[in-house]
């Protein structure tokens, strides 16, 4: 975080506001709850917070970075932050931040968005109500009472009725979630073997081709901006949807993958009752709930596959086509 937001370049005599600004805007309070002067004061308080990264003993070894506080580079003068004045350092700033109702609400809303249901995009939070205001109030209260103890806030959420009730598919899968879910199902990578990195390869790492993760809009460890990715339905556009569907098509067509073979065996023969075939596909792909019309479409497709299979001389048509279609549905995009 210090490196990502340039706090190693935030010096006593040369303030770099990146860390101070984004700490407030992205990671605690949300825009509109503090002033530009508060950003400057917070940035000054974090001067001297940096890291060092000793060279590894080994030629290709990992260089773990360590936090370091440089006293000589810290601004010890008085600062005024969110109405309080004192010789604040970074920890004091965080203490003040976690007392703010705006922080409690902002963090609670993020947790709800992450664990329960897609919220509206962050810029509109200032003006638009939350999907579940009662839940946000409940979490915010615990946050303020405990001084921002995340364990307590999470415990409150995981024990709440609305959390346990949230079994329907209310979140759009991120590309990582979609790909990891499919790869788990195909069984190709049940233990570490070379090749899995190709799914995440990007032009930013010097590759001329991009892997499915990048084409679906998520370059891991390399978000488009410090804000991160736009999530929820903004994961989906015509290009990323093409890739989502194309990806499952490619993964489920290869019957040599142990998970695919296993699923095909368990679904059964195309001569079986088409409704049962669809039920098994939905179950195997993650207990997916589909609408009645989608269900009917899948059953019709299963029937048609059976008829095509009977006329198929090459033997390329099979149950895996039904798995592909089931994983190409609108409902499969949700978790």
């Amino acid at each position: 975080m210090i490196f990502w937001l340039d706090n190693n370049e935030n010096h006593k005599d040369e303030i770099n506001e990146n860390y101070g600004r984004e700490l407030l805007e992205l990671f605690s309070m949300g825009v509109g709850n503090y002033t530009e002067d508060d950003i400057k004061a917070a940035s000054r308080a974090f001067t001297g917070w940096t890291f060092r990264q000793p060279l590894s003993l080994y030629p290709n070894g990992h260089y773990p970075a360590e936090f370091e506080f440089l006293e000589d580079d810290h601004d010890y003068d008085s600062k005024t932050f969110l109405g309080e004045t004192g010789d604040f350092d970074g920890e004091d700033i965080i203490d003040i931040i976690v007392k703010q109702p705006a922080t409690a609400r902002f963090v609670s809303r993020h947790l709800y968005n992450f664990f329960v249901e897609d919220e509206l995009q962050v810029p509109s939070w200032k003006t638009e109500p939350a999907k579940n205001e009662d839940a946000i109030a409940q979490l915010s209260k615990v946050f303020l009472e405990t001084g921002g103890d995340m364990r307590a806030v999470l415990k409150e959420m995981f024990n709440s009725d609305w959390f346990k009730a949230a079994t329907s598919f209310k979140k759009v899968k991120s590309p990582t979630e979609l790909i990891a879910g499919v790869l788990k199902q195909t069984g190709e990578f049940s233990y570490p073997v070379p090749g899995i990195q190709n799914f995440a390869i990007t032009s930013l790492n010097g590759s001329l081709v991009e892997g499915p993760l990048a084409i679906m809009g998520q370059r891991l460890m390399n978000p488009p901006t410090v804000e991160g990715w736009h999530t929820g339905h903004e994961w989906i556009d015509s290009g990323t949807l093409s890739e989502r569907v194309g990806f499952v098509e490619r993964q489920f067509e290869d019957l040599s993958k142990p998970g695919v073979k296993d699923m095909v065996d368990r679904v059964g023969s195309l001569d079986d009752d088409p409704s049962q075939l669809v039920d098994r596909c939905l179950d195997l792909l993650g207990s997916i709930n589909v609408s009645e019309q989608t269900y009917d479409s899948l059953v019709a497709y299963a029937k048609e596959l059976s008829s095509i299979e009977n006329d198929d001389v090459e033997g390329s048509v099979g149950v895996h086509n039904l798995l592909q279609m089931t994983a190409s549905t609108v409902d499969y995009q949700f978790e």
Binding site: I215, G217, L241, S242, Y301, I308, S328, V330
Partner: peptide
């Protein structure tokens, strides 16, 4: 929105015409 021009589209790996048409129809229906 085009992320990968060469790969754009769905069900475009299916070679058999009858199956491909059926797959596209089903996708469109869903």
């Amino acid at each position: 929105s085009v992320g990968d021009l060469e790969g754009y589209g769905v069900m475009n790996r299916i070679e058999q015409d009858r199956l491909k048409n059926m797959a596209l129809e089903t996708f469109k229906g869903i």
